[in-house]
Design a protein around this nucleic acid. Structure first.
Length: 617
DNA sequence: CAGTTCACG
DNA sequence: ACGTACGTGAACTGC
């Protein structure tokens, strides 16, 4: 037995590493005693983050309580792996920090089904996110194990990740290669592996007490664990990539980026990504630049360059001026470069051995509770089918996308109890459009599509907390016109302003934390408390999506789900049942929020995701 | 590592 | 007193 000692919060703790079957029997005895006393903390160390990549290995499985950890050398196989596999189902209740990762690692590499482990799991990261959902950059503690341990357990808790990076470097590895390369029995590696479970075991009761103290409903905690499991199932399924198409596309985009970069170079811009170079060259050509970035420099982003290139927001010629050839080349080089690198090449780089992408789905990523997805899959261009064309439904399947209709406006109407808005949603029928309704409400039957656009801008302004100037810039309308529209909007829907004041007042009385409709804690920034309207709407919409996912699982459709996208669920469904399944998705995503109907619209596509974006594939 | 830009809902 | 567009992930530049 290898044994390490460390001090946590003034107490001596032990990390045991069994070397033979005699040692493993001691582990087994400990496990049987510990599981009677309470939950067992669980963790794994692996060769990296892409669980489905070639050569991926599960290296250690750790078990522990507040004082003792056992690091099982899974990678050695034989008895070590066997004890680990048999120990996990024996734990009645497990504690994991960021459970989805370990669920999926154990599911893929140790034969422990995530469906079996998840119902017995408490995820300390979920508990932490429900106490304070903010990232460190936003003034929160964050939800990583290290800062949470430092805050709640021991200010001197070791930085096991950062500490290992230094060890990796000293052994000639990098932060990336070290996880696979470090010798399995390196003492620091084993000590830190053990400390992680000891810290998790200590964190769980402390965070639970804090949730109780804050009055966070137990129901919300349970709900988040269900959502985490559902998102992990989608991550495990992953998405099929059309590799031939994607390779060709990556090559074509690289060539295009190169071609336009050559044009830009003729004007002295050697790097199209260098804002400083672009600014200097444009000024040298006699162009006037007025927009400023947040940092105070002259801006040369898309909104600045498009007019210089005589292009509108859809990249169509305006005919108002002679296009600036440099602006045009920079725009095109950057777009081709981004699409090629961030999407096409990233798809290929992230491929699993089965030719799939398994993006990390984080169910509680944003401070509003919104989810996030890695590998660019939440940000694929929607103006063109080219990139989404690379993602395929399963053989014999088609893509089905079902999205909520104007969900944030409906949520606003429901939460702020906006009388005339609610009337519209309740009586409006299937084809109801809130922005047309608003335009007619204010302008009468003379309302034009232009009025619709203006009041749509005003509506988004309300949900986002924007002012006249921003709405004017976004819609391209005159400030005076927008000012009138916003005033009319406020008269038509006076409840919104009143709700904003009320919600800000509630937050002030609760140490700047607004409690959402589902009991979620939403901390506000003191200098922009107006954002409470957005937080309330965004987080409620997220919780409706969560409820929809529970309904979808209840209807037996989870196996078809591929991605949650804020107000949409993307699915791959058998072609011959597509109509029926699409109707079921619609049913699962239709619900009621304080009498306001939340409705959903399913779309059946072809084999590729791109087929839902205008092309017929 | 901060700043800028660009892609989405 | 007044007014503030919200939330992400990712690549690249330049210090």
């Amino acid at each position: 037995m290898l044994t390490f000692r460390h001090t946590v919060a003034g107490e001596s703790v032990t990390v045991n590493v069994p070397e033979d079957t005699t040692d493993l029997k001691l582990f087994w005895d400990w496990l049987n005693r510990a599981r009677e006393r309470g939950p067992i903390a669980l963790d794994t160390e692996t060769t990296g983050l892409n669980i489905y990549s070639a050569g991926y290995r599960l290296r250690t499985v750790q078990f522990g309580d507040a004082h003792e950890a056992w690091v099982l050398l899974y990678e050695q196989g034989g008895y070590h792996a066997q004890y680990a596999r048999e120990a996990i189902p024996r734990c009645r209740e497990v504690l994991i920090h960021n459970a989805a990762f370990d669920w999926l690692v154990l599911d893929e590499h140790a034969g422990i089904r995530l469906e079996d482990l998840a119902p017995h799991t408490t995820d300390t990261r979920i508990l932490a996110a429900l106490i304070d959902p903010r990232q460190p950059s936003e003034g929160g503690a964050g939800t990583a194990l290290k800062p949470l341990s430092a805050k709640w357990i021991d200010p001197a808790a070791p930085d096991t990740q950062g500490g290992l990076t230094r060890v990796f470097n000293s052994l000639g590895f990098t932060k990336e290669t070290g996880w696979a390369g470090i010798p399995l029995t390196h003492p620091t590696y084993l000590l830190y592996a053990g400390l992680d479970v000891i810290l998790t075991a200590r964190l769980a009761p402390v965070l639970r007490r804090e949730l109780d103290r804050l009055g966070v409903r137990h129901q919300l905690v349970t709900y988040e664990h269900e959502i985490a499991r559902i998102c992990a199932v989608m991550q495990r399924a992953g998405l099929l990539v059309d590799q031939d198409y994607t390779s060709t596309l990556a090559g074509r985009l690289a060539e295009e980026a190169e071609r336009y970069a050559t044009v830009a170079a003729r004007y002295g811009v050697t790097k199209v990504g260098s804002s400083a170079q672009v600014t200097e060259a444009l000024l040298g050509m006699g162009e006037r630049l007025t927009e400023r970035t947040k940092g105070g420099a002259l801006a040369t982003d898309k909104t600045v360059l498009l007019p210089l290139a005589d292009l509108d927001r859809d990249w169509q010629r305006i005919g108002a001026r002679q296009p600036n050839a440099l602006a045009d080349a920079v725009l095109r080089a950057k777009r081709a470069g981004k699409w090629g690198k961030t999407y096409a090449e990233a798809f290929l780089a992230n491929l699993s051995t089965a030719g799939r992408i398994h993006p990390t789905v984080s169910p509680l990523a944003a401070r509003t509770g919104r989810m996030s997805v890695t590998a660019g899959l939440h940000q694929l261009p929607s103006s063109d089918h080219m990139i989404r064309r690379a993602i395929l439904a399963e053989p014999g399947h088609v893509m089905v996308s079902t999205d909520f209709q104007a969900v944030e406006m409906r949520v606003l109407a429901a939460l702020a109890n906006v009388r005339r808005m609610k009337e519209g949603f309740i009586n409006g029928g299937d084809e109801f459009d809130i922005h047309t309704y608003t335009a007619k409400l204010i302008k009468g039957e003379n309302a034009t599509p232009r009025h619709r656009k203006i009041f749509k801008g005003a509506g988004f302004g309300k949900v986002y907390g924007g002012g006249v100037a921003t709405i004017a810039k976004q819609t391209g309308a005159e400030e005076a016109e927008i000012a009138q529209a916003v005033a009319a909007y406020d008269r038509a829907f006076p409840e919104i302003k009143r709700a904003s004041s009320r919600w800000q007042r509630q937050a002030f009385q609760n140490r700047m934390v607004f409690i959402s409709a589902t009991g979620r804690r939403l901390p506000l920034d003191r200098d922009r408390t107006y954002s409470v309207v957005n937080y309330a709407c965004q987080s409620a919409a997220r919780d409706l999506l969560g409820q929809a996912l529970l309904n979808i699982e209840g209807a037996g459709l989870l196996e078809y789900c591929r991605l949650p996208i804020h107000d949409e669920v993307l699915a791959s469904v058998p072609q011959r049942d597509a109509e029926d399944i699409a109707r079921e998705f619609q049913r699962c995503m239709s619900m009621d929020l304080y009498d306001v109907p939340i409705t959903a619209d399913p779309e059946i596509g072809g084999r590729s995701w791109g087929s839902l974006y205008g092309a017929d594939y």
